[in-house]
Design a protein around this nucleic acid. Structure first.
Length: 668
DNA sequence: TTAGGGTTAG
């Protein structure tokens, strides 16, 4: 391949073999030499000259030398008298293909438009149309797509399945799913790709139910063989899927005889995107057992569930695989790794990945900023945000969410306010509900309740339940009953079924000693048939994830866990711990309240891990609610008596507890 | 000698 001019083959056949082997920019000198020799050897009228042009265009394109590929096309089309008219069309097709592969869709369409005026020798054919329809889809050009599709119909090429499939995709991507369906419905013969195109088409157009319906129609068809394209197509329709649909997709996956890697990746993503973190990690372990080689997509998909579950040993194993396979530098993976480490409570791991990166994008910076933020290191997060600006990167909407959340976690009131202002005035980013929520949280928890409320009234969008929820939380902390009631009214209006807020309100009444109101909130809950959202904690032990519910007695080790917990609570009581009865609903007698508290799921999880790990092992507990102040205090004291580091992750942040001191500084 | 659907991180 690195043949110098003097070592070039002499026969046309070997020269063409050499041309075909040129597939990277480094091969360009050899390619040009071979090209020159071919020009001498093959007169344009030679029967092989046309064939050579096709190969040369392909090779130049593969070597990222598109202008040279273009030059070959021009010379071959001007001397097309020698070759058949088919050849010129093939040359165009090959170059258009190269342009679409490089995402140069506009260039591809311009080249296509130049075909007809050159005469019948350059007529687009059934190979050309799929390519240009794809370019229309990619550039969202419905008008041109419609023109091309009507030209296709006139030429009677619409019966060609390749043309039909790209037409389906084009219509769906350009926001015309019904036209896509018309093409699909009119097809005489459908193959697996026809179904896949229609499933993906409906999904892309946001018609998830229709996509799932077509998917189901297809898989029950006798002899149908869903493939990786089917799985990938249905994946995009499963954003917020019903559990029975997820079970159904899994059964289709299980029945596939040949499971391509993309099918595994799609199944993983279905689980990951729907919050089935345990299922995702279990499926990944099944891949390992079946010796399916994961690729970077697999690992980037399964890392977030590891982080959600604080499944640190699996997460670290994935990092080992990434190192062993030399998959980095890879922004996608490195960014996902940082997040996994941060969510497993291992800030140092996240920082090490960040420091080792050879290139960083806004997502990388956002990941490390939110890592510091979640761990309560607001100052470092703010410092990193400034570093990012110094590097010349432009923060986007999500980067601002990260820095605002960091400010709110650390109580950095002035920084938060100034970032919010610069976001709008300097970066012209329209604040979304998340930004408002951070600000209300920041102001409210700092005690500026009225300011937080006024802030809400100036919002450009309708405040959602999270915004009001942040205000209610602040009102509870600072016992502001008047504004708290306004927040509560809005919450009941917006999300009457969300019980977390009822509990918050009830606790606020309890704190103010308004027991009659506590009772009336309780009766509303009972009347509406609402039960308190069950607090759940999960922990990783070995390769398994264990789940604990409040007051749970289902675990096989239940007896021992409660014994261990009694022992721990006894010890911390002697240190002065008194259960904070106010933290729970005031609906039971004092004694029962204490009993209720003692079995909060995070306490059970901590006892379980202390029982099953050697002394001094760091303990990681993840829960599905904000941890209550009583469990927070208990965890701090338990960290002292057992000399154990406890990492407690709740829905809002990560509490890193060492020797009785929490990284949140008790500000949460 | 060329063509269709489809997966990943904040």
């Amino acid at each position: 391949m690195h043949a110098s001019r003097s070592h070039l083959p002499t026969s046309g056949e070997s020269l063409l073999r050499l041309v075909s082997a040129c597939r990277a920019p480094a091969h360009l000198p050899s390619l040009r030499a071979a090209h020159a020799r071919l020009l001498v050897l093959l007169h344009p009228s030679h029967p092989s000259a046309a064939h050579a042009s096709v190969k040369l265009i392909q090779a130049y394109a593969a070597c990222s030398a598109l202008p040279l590929a273009h030059a070959v096309l021009e010379s071959s089309s001007s001397s097309s008298a020698g070759g058949s008219s088919r050849t010129t069309t093939v040359c165009f097709n090959v170059l258009i293909r190269a342009l679409t592969a490089a995402s140069l869709h506009r260039d591809a369409l311009v080249l296509f438009a130049s075909m007809r005026p050159r005469g019948p020798a350059c007529s687009p054919d059934h190979y050309t149309y799929p390519l240009v329809l794809k370019s229309c889809a990619a550039s969202n050009d419905l008008l041109l797509g419609l023109q091309i599709h009507s030209a296709v119909a006139k030429l009677r090429l619409d019966a060609n399945v390749y043309v039909a499939h790209s037409a389906i995709s084009m219509y769906a991507r350009c926001g015309r799913p019904e036209d896509a369906y018309r093409v699909f419905d009119g097809m005489q013969h459908r193959d697996v790709v026809s179904w896949n195109a229609m499933i993906a088409g409906f999904a892309r157009a946001g018609l998830f139910d229709r996509a799932i319906e077509v998917f189901k129609q297809f898989v029950v068809l006798p002899g149908s063989m869903p493939d990786a394209g089917t799985m990938a197509g249905i994946l995009s329709a499963m954003g917020n899927a019903k559990s029975e649909d997820i079970v159904f997709v899994r059964s289709v996956f299980n029945n596939m005889q040949f499971k391509e890697l993309i099918s595994w990746n799609a199944m993983l993503a279905v689980y990951a995107n729907n919050g089935y973190h345990v299922k995702a990690v279990e499926l990944f372990m099944l891949m390992e057992k079946d010796e399916v080689e994961p690729d970077s997509v697999t690992l980037a998909t399964v890392l977030p569930p590891c982080g959600e579950l604080s499944a640190f040993s699996v997460g670290k194993r994935i990092h080992e695989i990434i190192k062993r396979k030399n998959m980095c530098p890879n922004l996608l993976l490195e960014n996902a790794l940082m997040d996994m480490y941060a969510n497993c409570g291992c800030l140092k791991g996240a920082r090490d990945v960040f420091d080792s990166m050879s290139a960083r994008d806004v997502i990388s910076w956002t990941s490390i900023i939110s890592a510091y933020g979640k761990h309560g290191h607001g100052r470092e997060a703010v410092y990193l945000f400034e570093k990012m600006l110094e590097e010349g990167l432009k923060p986007d909407s999500i980067a601002f969410v990260a820095v605002l959340a960091a400010c709110s976690h650390a109580g950095l009131l002035d920084d938060g306010k100034s970032y919010f202002d610069s976001m709008t005035s300097r970066y012209h980013i329209t604040p979304k509900a998340e930004h408002y929520t951070c600000m209300v949280d920041l102001l409210g928890r700092a005690g500026c309740i009225s300011e937080a409320y006024d802030f809400i009234t100036t919002m450009l969008i309708e405040p959602n339940e999270r915004v009001w929820g942040a205000l209610l939380q602040a009102c509870r902390i600072h016992s502001n009953m008047d504004i708290g009631l306004v927040a509560a009214d809005n919450l009941f209006r917006l999300v009457p079924e969300q019980t977390g807020y009822y509990v918050l309100l009830s606790n606020m009444y309890a704190r103010a000693g308004r027991w009659a109101d506590v009772t009336s909130v309780r009766s509303v809950m009972v009347n509406k048939g609402i039960k308190k959202f069950p607090g759940t904690s999960i922990v990783e032990l070995g390769d398994r994830v264990h789940t604990f519910h409040i007051g749970d007695r289902c675990h096989p080790q239940s007896e021992m866990i409660y014994q261990k917990l009694d022992e721990l609570l006894g010890k911390i009581r002697r240190m002065g711990y008194n259960p904070e009865v106010e933290a729970t609903l005031h609906d039971v007698e004092e004694e029962d309240k204490e009993g209720h508290l003692s079995v909060h799921s995070e306490k059970l999880a901590i006892a379980f891990l202390l029982l099953n790990t050697s002394p001094g092992t760091t303990i990681r507990v993840t829960m599905n609610l904000r941890t209550c102040s009583d469990c927070h205090l208990a965890a701090k004291l338990i960290s002292v008596i057992t000399s154990t580091e406890i990492i407690l992750k709740d829905t809002n942040r990560i509490h890193h507890i060492v020797q009785g001191v929490c990284s949140c500084g008790d500000y949460w």
